[in-house]
Amino acid sequence: MPLDPITSPQNPRIKNLLKLQQKSSERRAQGLTIVEGLRELTIAHGAGVAVTALFVCPDLAGAQHQQALRELFGRQGVEWFEVSKAVFEKVAYREGSDGVLALVKPPLLTLEELPLPASPLLLVLEAVEKPGNLGAILRTADAAQATAVIVCDPRTDLFNPNAIRSSIGCSFTVPTIATTRPELLAWCQRHGIRTYAAALTAAAVPYTTCNFQGPTALVMGTEADGLTPELMQACDQTIIIPMRGAIDSLNVSTATAILTFEAVRQREV
């Protein structure tokens, strides 16, 4: 049940929430991240993520959301703090918040810990830096039931609160792993995973001509720079999505969705 209400922004717990929200170094040091929103928190809980504390604004959450939280966490000994509306608005990082925020322990996996089916479908992102793009790709991975999302040399931490928000909680339903380019390539080679680099090169072939039914990794670069030459050249095949208009490329999350669902289509034939 809730403890005494928090009404001051100088409360140490509130100050710590702000640090966790703003600094990836704090999230790494404390092994925690922030999930805002009942929907996202319900998905995280369903995926088995450990929740350590709840911060609830009764004025925003309302009786229905509070009852849902009691049903989810009432018997788990999770600390529950009521927060005034003025204080909650300082820690909320989305517009139209529903008054629910939680501290959770994100699941940290390595490549070697990832269980692989016979024909894994992996989405590989190199140097992703925009949490919104990472979140959108995680939603695609969840919808397609991809095996995992693997990020090489990330420029944002995988459990950035904004990535969680953009993923609507799919950060927790899809195994998500940070690694380096050499580690990824060696691991793919050991497991017989064919790598397809999405890049505009002379050697690239239309994605619809490729066979994605076997062990497959779809490798995507950043919107600004694309893939590094080192990773592009190390992949087994370069592929493109043919452009029919004036523009020569798509948003990386859109391009990833197109390639992913082509792989899903082939696997269902």
Rank of each mutant, 00 (worst) to 15 (best):
F81D: 01
G77T: 03
T110N: 03
E26K: 13
V252K: 00
Q30E: 14
A202E: 15
E126P: 02
H65Y: 08
T238V: 07
T201Q: 10
Q64E: 15
S8M: 12
M220Y: 15
A255R: 05
Q233A: 14
G46K: 07
P12N: 07
I43V: 14
L54K: 04
N211Q: 11
L125E: 04
L18S: 03
G221H: 01
L123Y: 01
L185P: 05
G192A: 03
G77E: 04
L41T: 05
D153Y: 03
L17M: 09
Q145V: 10
V269F: 06
L17I: 10
D59M: 08
F172H: 01
A118Q: 11
G214F: 04
R139Y: 09
A44L: 04
A178Y: 14
E82I: 04
I34H: 07
T52A: 14
S171W: 00
A148K: 00
T195E: 06
V252G: 05
Q266C: 07
I168A: 12
A136H: 05
S166P: 00
V91P: 05
D236R: 09
I240D: 05
E262G: 02
Y93C: 02
G221D: 01
P229C: 12
T256H: 01
I43C: 06
Q233W: 07
T140V: 15
D4I: 13
S84F: 07
S171I: 13
K23D: 13
D236Q: 12
L134H: 05
D98F: 02
E95V: 13
T33K: 04
G37Y: 02
T33F: 03
K15E: 15
Y196A: 05
E40W: 11
V49S: 00
E40K: 11
Y207A: 10
L32Y: 06
L41Y: 09
G214P: 04
Q266T: 03
T195H: 05
G46W: 07
V269D: 14
R39G: 06
G31K: 13
N16E: 15
A29H: 10
